[in-house]
C-alpha cells in the first residue's frame, strides 16, 4: 500500500517517526506551514521556519525514501499579530520555489477582520503564483466558519478545483462537496475525525475529491492514522483501488495542479550517504 500524507507537520516529529512512516508505506508528504505552539514575534522567525520546510525537512525525509513538499503561508492564528503581518511581504519569493505545491494553511481561526484580510490577500497570491490553496477550517464555530471560508474563496476567483478545505467532519462535508472544492479530513486519536467515522463518510459521499491526512504535529496525534484509516476502509469492503485513490491518487491530482510535485524516486532512500549521522543517531 502506498500512502501520500497531504498534511503533516514533520518539523514537530522525530526521525523515528520518518522511519515508522516509511515502513508503513508513506512515500510522500506535504507539510503545510502553520503555527508552532509558541507564538512567533517577528518575520525572521518565519523565514527560518519556511527555509527549514524547503531545506532540512525534505533532506531528512529523503533519507527515508519519503518525498517531502511544503505549502507556505501566514497562518490564520498569527495573522492576528501585528508583529507577524510583514510575513505577507516575504511570501512572494517563497511561492516561486520548486518545493512549494500550494499556498497554505490559510483561512480562519477566530474569524477576525485581520484574518479576513490575510485570507483574501493570500488567495490572490495563490492565483498570481499559479498555485492551489490549502485552507484550514476553524475548530470553533466550525460550520459557520466553513461557510464563510467557501464564500471568501469563491469571491477571490480561484477555481474551486484548486482549493482544498481541510479538517472537515460530518457537519461540514456536504457544503464543501457541493462547492466543488476538495475535501480534507484529519484523522486524530481523539478529536477531529476517527478512522471508523471516516469510513462512514466515505461510504456516504464516495472517494471523489476526498483526501485523508494525519495532520500530526506537536499535539496528541499519530502519523500512522492514515494507514489505520486505509485498513479500516478495506475491512469495511472498499477495494484496493478505492484505498489507493484516497491515499495516493487524490493528493497527487490535487497538488499536481501546482506543476511542482516531484515524485521521482518516491520509494528510493537517498543512495549517496547511507551512513549519514541522522540515520545513525549522531549529530
Amino acid at each position: 500500500m502506498r500512502i501520500f500524507d497531504p498534511h503533516i507537520h514533520m518539523t514537530s516529529r522525530t526521525t523515528d517517526d520518518y522511519r515508522r512512516m516509511a515502513a508503513a508505506g508513506v512515500r510522500a508528504v506535504v507539510e503545510p506551514a502553520f503555527w508552532l505552539g509558541q507564538p512567533r514575534t517577528n518575520p525572521g522567525s518565519f523565514a527560518d521556519y519556511f527555509d527549514s520546510l524547503l531545506g532540512w525537512e525534505p533532506y531528512r525525509a529523503g533519507l527515508f525514501g519519503i518525498r517531502h513538499h511544503a505549502t507556505i503561508a501566514l497562518n490564520p492564528k498569527e495573522a492576528n499579530d501585528p508583529r507577524c503581518r510583514p510575513v505577507l511581504d516575504l511570501l512572494p519569493r517563497y511561492l516561486d520555489k520548486d518545493g512549494v505545491v500550494a499556498v497554505g494553511e490559510i483561512g480562519y481561526d477566530s474569524m477576525t477582520p485581520e484574518e479576513d484580510d490575510a485570507f483574501a490577500r493570500q488567495l490572490a497570491l495563490a492565483i498570481e503564483h499559479d498555485l492551489p490553496a490549502l485552507v484550514h477550517t476553524p475548530h470553533r464555530d466550525k460550520a459557520r466558519g466553513t461557510r464563510r471560508t467557501l464564500d471568501v474563496a469563491a469571491e477571490s476567483g480561484i477555481p474551486p478545483g484548486r482549493v482544498l478545505v481541510d479538517h472537515l467532519n460530518e457537519l461540514t462535508v456536504e457544503i464543501v462537496k457541493e462547492s466543488g472544492c476538495w475535501m480534507g479530513f484529519s484523522i486524530y486519536p481523539e478529536t477531529k475525525m476517527s478512522p471508523p467515522r471516516m469510513v462512514e463518510i466515505l461510504r456516504r459521499h464516495g472517494p471523489e475529491r476526498v483526501l485523508v491526512n494525519s495532520a500530526a504535529d506537536w499535539g496528541h496525534s499519530d502519523p500512522l492514522l492514515t494507514l489505520e484509516t486505509a485498513r479500516a476502509m478495506l475491512d469495511a469492503g472498499f477495494d484496493a483501488d478505492d484505498v489507493d485513490r484516497v491515499m495516493w491518487s487524490n493528493p497527487v491530482e490535487f497538488f499536481g495542479q501546482s506543476g511542482r510535485l516531484d515524485l521521482s524516486g518516491a520509494d528510493q532512500p537517498e543512495p549517496a550517504f547511507q551512513g549519514s549521522s541522522i540515520l545513525r543517531g549522531g549529530s
Binding site: 519569493r93 516561486d96 520555489k97 520548486d98 518545493g99 506543476g259 511542482r260 516531484d262
Partner: peptide
C-alpha cells in the same frame, strides 16, 4: 535571476 533561479528545478528537471 530570482524567479528563474527558484523555478529551475521544475523547468530543467533533476
Amino acid at each position: 535571476i530570482g524567479r528563474h533561479f527558484a523555478s529551475a528545478g521544475r523547468r530543467a528537471g533533476r
